[in-house]
Design a binder for these strands. Structure first.
Lengths: 231, 231
DNA sequence: CGATTTGTTGACTCTAATCAAGCGTAGTGG
DNA sequence: CCACTACGCTTGATTAGAGTCAACAAATCG
């Protein structure tokens, strides 16, 4: 009816950036192929600490060493959409433009490697293999973003199933999944509410598809059901 | 309740690829900065003709000269998600991997410039400016994909408003928008049904926000309303 | 240990999907 | 030129699924 809708403004507590002073050690940044070892400094971030904010100048490119990171955008009415979760080994924050297009926060206490964007770009100028690697990171993220889009047109069951399978693949866990993120994070990633996520998980447990060992420890008991929902 | 859901299988008519023999002319491919003019051949595609299919080897990179193109994925139950619309000047089909991750079709009779991927990549190897341009194309597409994600968590009104504003920005039309795509295309882009798209447009007309001159000719009468919904 | 956050469950609401019918326009062929 | 058909679009009635609001349970943290 076009009237200004009354919206649920979820309280977004903007966490204060709590950067501890970085240790002086350096570690290799892009070393997948073994061909390039650019150095960066590992920086610790507390749980919920902001790593960078939307529209802030993009100064570094980041790689998760330990922990987990979420990138997200917030709509003016408070709705938050989590674009991606980044786990150890994942690179994030690589932008073409001058500014970051989303915010990034540590989900749990994490260690993140920082490399100056300018250094990376300057090297890429002279090194076509590095240039290709940078492009490759962006292209993979594009693929992920497109997969994410496919998620958002599915039913709640299908979204949660896809999420569980994605995490099972990416979290190298034996046995049960050890999720670093809260129900709110999952909900904001899947475009659902925490209640729906919770109910769907309970439902999966009811059909013996999963087992909720603890709220963040989930064992996948029947992947075939999840795979069918994921198709 | 986890039972195999009965799904509406929309009849997807896979269009036969109707490539007319390409004219021998060549035109510049990437010429934004004026620095690179790689040649390619313009190829005509009939309305609804397939340009490439999902999982097909990615042999070319494409640039729309005339007309409009949609890229999409289809879920196993027939639901189609349109990832993007490409209009004259837009580049599409640039993939990192060997195969296309989505299908592409001409929305209306179109002319598309083709450049061999291998040629582009080989040149990029030696030319860091071209390498950067290729990366830039992918990065822009990533940005668009992320914007698209934000769309999909919004209400029907907000999605349609965003769509109208996007098209108004991208279609260089004086006065009214001349949409090349059907309601079904719009619905599949916005993650809605044609009925909801239609109803929402009617609703916008009811509040004098837009005017439906013809089903595909739409005049935006009150952008402030649309902008407010787009926030 | 109490306090606070995080997660679950229930009752109810509401938005968009579904099902179904009808309209308008474009294209076809007599 | 006018039926006739086909398709794309609109509109209406009803339903289903996720959201909202609220209470409570469980886990975590000082």
């Amino acid at each position: 009816m076009l009237q200004t809708q009354t919206v649920q403004v979820r309280q977004i507590v903007v966490p204060r950036e709590t950067r501890k002073s970085p240790p002086p050690t350096t570690t290799s940044f892009l070393g997948q192929t073994g061909s390039f070892e650019l150095n960066g400094m590992p920086m610790p971030f507390d749980r919920n600490a902001e790593i960078f904010g939307e529209d802030e100048p993009s100064e570094y490119v980041y790689k998760v060493i330990k922990g987990a990171v979420r990138t997200y955008k917030v709509l003016n009415d408070g709705r938050r959409q989590i674009n991606a979760f980044f786990l150890p080994g994942d690179v994030f924050g690589l932008e073409l433009g001058k500014d970051h297009r989303c915010s990034a926060e540590a989900i749990v206490d994490s260690s993140v490697l920082l490399v100056r964007r300018t250094v990376l770009f300057a090297s890429a100028e002279r090194n076509s293999e590095l240039a290709r690697q940078l492009w490759s990171i962006t292209a993979r993220e594009l693929n992920r973003a497109q997969d994410h889009t496919m998620l958002l047109i599915k039913s709640a069951q299908e979204r949660v199933a896809a999420f569980l399978l994605e995490m099972s693949r990416r979290l190298s866990g034996e046995g049960a999944l050890e999720l670093p993120m809260s129900r709110q994070d999952i909900a904001d990633y899947l475009g659902l509410t925490i209640e729906t996520v919770s109910r769907t998980l309970t439902q999966f447990q009811g059909t013996a598809t999963i087992e909720l060992l603890a709220s963040r420890r989930i064992a996948l008991r029947d992947r075939s059901v999840l795979n069918r929902l994921n198709a």
